[in-house]
């Protein structure tokens, strides 16, 4: 899937993450800000990358501001940002690209 615009999902509340995605040309350019970056930075990166891979996003600039989100929340925010960027709100691939 190609990103058509910029999308953002999530908040800066505790247990949440704010994810912004925008079209890129140079693979996945990922920037992460988190108070638990030393303990969980690698895991956050892996979850975000895997979620984007599931969605077949190959090029994107992605910014994650993490406030202690669980993996399931991170995935939800990445997917939320991607589908918002492309203006898709119906007929979503639950259990397919969203897994």
């Amino acid at each position: 899937m190609e990103l058509k615009g910029t999308g953002m999902a999530g908040t800066l509340e505790s247990s949440d993450a704010q994810v912004t995605v925008e079209p890129g040309t140079n693979g996945i350019e990922l920037s992460i800000e988190s108070s638990v970056i030393n303990q969980y930075g690698r895991q956050i990166r892996a979850t975000v990358k895997q979620t984007l891979e599931n969605l077949e996003i190959k090029n994107a600039k992605v910014t994650v501001v993490d406030k202690g989100a669980l993996d399931c929340t991170l995935k939800a925010r990445v997917e939320g940002a991607v589908f918002r960027a492309n203006g898709v709100v119906e007929g979503l691939p639950w259990g397919g690209a969203i897994k």
Binding site: A9, G10, D71, C72, A76, R77, G80, R84, W94, K99
Partner: peptide
């Protein structure tokens, strides 16, 4: 936020 809430719901149902 209806769209965003659905993603949260889906993963909560699947993973928690």
């Amino acid at each position: 936020q209806k769209d965003a809430a659905r993603f949260s719901l889906y993963h909560a149902l699947q993973e928690i």
